[in-house]
Design a protein around this nucleic acid. Structure first.
Lengths: 148, 148
DNA sequence: GTAATCGATTACCTCAAAGTAACCAAGGGG
DNA sequence: CCCCTTGGTTACTTTGAGGTAATCGATTAC
């Protein structure tokens, strides 16, 4: 659960301005958690501000296993992005909701998600073109003969 | 190099609007590449628009190995985010520069990077508080006696 | 002659993240 | 009596992303 990179490796880096390009800057761990496999999707679901139950999250974020969903939510709770609210009942009810800090990630992450959704077509075309050109270059020269 | 998720698993999902929450939507692969470990940092360095040499990239993005830098750049070239420009000389010179598509990722990714750099302090405080509260709950009850 | 440069590639290894499957308690419904 | 529910946990396995170190070829600088 705890992360090796949570601590600053180089003690001299402690009070310098944060810079993800700097190997020792702890902002790298923050960026990595934000870009964890499931975190952007979870934050997308929580973005409207309504509390969401564990099982509903599990259904909405398609393909996530309960183990990984729990782990990711714990990590986000530890970072202060979400609040876990337990209602003791049978069956138990647990809601997750954004903190103010978590809510401030919604805009940047939504922009990234929108970019991916808007440009998936162009990216796929680029990939096909690249793979085709790679194959051409490897198999034969323009005249149908093997390259020198 | 090629990616299993590059193809749509469910053929019926082909022409639906892109949605990262959908397990079969190829936009998920796009989002994942954008959030690859080194991609946001590489795009940060290329953001100004000037071509950047391989070795300069290697120096600026601290901690990246040549192998992984090559892999990441290839993947970004395949997706159409960067252009690789070779100048045959001795020693060889290779520049990388953003395509228009790549340039359009700069804003969203820079916003994410800025968030990480701006909030690293608060996140670290949250982590310390969470870990402290966890330790308290596990070790002793408020009266110094073991919990029932 | 030999060291350094650049932009890789290769083989190999490691480790953390993710996946799988089983199980839990405490009740309610059939 | 058995199974369903919720929100997990545990143990185990898999994967793949990433890291390490060595090497390359062609040339210039020392």
């Amino acid at each position: 659960m705890t992360d090796v990179m949570d601590q600053t490796v180089n003690p001299n880096a402690a009070q310098l301005p944060a810079d993800v390009l700097n190997q020792d800057c702890p902002s790298r761990t923050v960026l990595r958690h934000l870009t964890d496999r499931w975190a952007p999707m979870i934050l997308t679901v929580l973005a409207p501000g309504q509390p969401v139950r564990f099982t509903e999250l599990r259904r909405t974020v398609q393909g996530v296993s309960p183990k990984v969903l729990t782990e990711t939510l714990r990590s986000m709770e530890r970072d202060g992005l979400v609040t876990r609210r337990v209602t003791p009942s049978v069956p138990p009810r647990v809601d997750y909701l954004l903190t103010d800090l978590g809510a401030s990630t919604v805009e940047p992450l939504a922009a990234l998600r929108r970019w991916a959704e808007a440009n998936v077509g162009e990216v796929q075309r680029n990939r096909r073109r690249y793979d085709r050109e790679q194959a051409e270059g490897l198999i034969a020269s323009p005249c149908g003969q093997a390259p020198p």
